[in-house]
Design a protein around this nucleic acid. Structure first.
Length: 369
DNA sequence: AGATGCGGGGCGA
DNA sequence: TCGCCCCGCATCT
């Protein structure tokens, strides 16, 4: 297979000049190029109709990772792994934090977990959560395709996400870890009492105030999507590149820019203060030198608390505020995509009630003191 | 518990 | 037939 492909590759190189043209392949091609001169750094937020060729040794590529919440989709083709975007979980109240951030949670990949997730409430206003499904591909979710061929892993994305970015996988995992730690530490019952007591105290802050920003967040949230393509690989890949354990292989730029059109929900850079609505910073960030896709290390792999590393993402095209512990999943404000108020089909659409927020979400966001 | 991958099967274009 | 989705199951972290 490898050898057979070489001929094809030679031809391609001769005629197409390995610059940009090498992306003329399609994930469904019978034969894919095997003599790839330059491979890509792992892309954490692939969007639009892009293609990438990763090293087969790239851990992130091996695991078909993405910071978008992608779920496996059966395409009845064992050679090509297909994943479709689940969108983002937002607050039905469309609430914003005091500093204008929106709530963008990462949809759970597991169906049951996702249903369970939607029964929880907004960490900011306690309102119901809603799944904003992705319809960036002709009304269907954006799809990502992965195909292992020889020493490369080919990636192709179809569709442009029409929704904000959810929190990253690492953030979501970290959040769960924190939840576990907290629930293990203090039974919700006694905790509830305590909170009620606190609230009853004069001058006590309402729950809402204490809710949000207990979790720091990485720059992931700061990074608007519509910029992809504007970020030179050299500027954005090092972070992930490190994580993939590969030496830098800067690829000829500009070939995978995709359409370049920005989704309507494009957001604008916003100051990242990340202060609690009440003005307080919370949860010091444990900085790491690694990104979320750091290989061989889970979110807690280094023994430190969930690292909402500011290096989770490569430098954005605009000054990226660092350090500020930000609430994960609370993103800069941006106009919601013009998708009508549709309940959003699928699982997001059926949320109606507002009084089911009795679970532990509330407590999960309370820091241990 | 949740993420991930696989495969069966239903449904509509 | 194709593309998309839902579902259950198995494995892994």
């Amino acid at each position: 297979m490898l050898k057979g492909a070489e001929d094809v590759v030679m031809e391609q190189e001769d005629s197409a000049s390995r610059r940009g043209e090498m992306t003329s392949w399609d994930i469904n091609d019978i034969k894919l190029p095997q003599d790839v001169r330059q491979i890509d750094w792992f892309q954490e937020w692939p969007d639009s109709y892009v293609k990438h060729i990763y090293s087969s040794e790239d851990k992130n590529a091996q695991r078909h990772h993405s910071s978008w919440a992608m779920r496996n989709t059966n395409n009845h083709n064992s050679r090509i792994l297909k994943k479709s975007c689940l969108g983002v979980v937002v607050c039905s109240n469309d609430c914003s934090t005091l500093d204008g951030r929106k709530i963008y949670l990462r949809p759970a990949i597991c169906d049951k977990a996702r249903q369970k997730q939607q029964r929880k409430c907004c960490p900011n206003c306690n309102g119901p959560l809603r799944l904003l499904s992705c319809r960036g591909h002709g009304g269907y979710p954006v799809t990502n395709f992965w195909r292992h061929e020889g020493q490369f892993i080919f990636f192709q994305s179809k569709g442009a996400h029409d929704h904000p970015r959810p929190e990253t996988k690492l953030e979501a995992e970290a959040r769960r870890s924190i939840q576990k730690a907290q629930t293990a530490f203090s039974p919700s019952s006694s905790r509830l009492k305590r909170i009620q007591e606190i609230e009853s105290l004069p001058g006590a802050t309402p729950t809402q105030e204490a809710l949000p920003l207990l979790l720091s967040k990485p720059d992931a949230d700061l990074q608007p999507a519509p910029f992809r393509g504007h970020l030179s690989k050299s500027s954005r890949e090092p972070t992930l590149g490190r994580s993939s354990g590969r030496p830098p292989f800067p690829r000829a730029a500009g070939e995978d820019r995709g359409s370049g059109e920005a989704p309507t929900w494009s957001r604008t850079p916003s100051p990242q203060h990340c202060t609690h609505p009440g003005g307080q910073h919370v949860l010091p960030v444990t900085k790491g030198d690694h990104g979320p896709f750091r290989p061989n290390a889970g979110p807690l792999g280094n023994g430190s608390p969930p690292a909402y590393s500011s290096s989770c993402l490569p430098p954005p095209p605009y000054p990226a505020p660092h350090g500020g512990p930000c609430p994960m999943a609370i993103h800069p404000q941006l106009p919601p995509p013009p998708r009508g108020s549709q309940g959003d089909g699928g699982e997001g659409g059926r949320r109606t009630g507002l009084n089911y927020c009795q679970d532990d979400t509330f407590f999960n966001l309370y820091p241990l003191r």
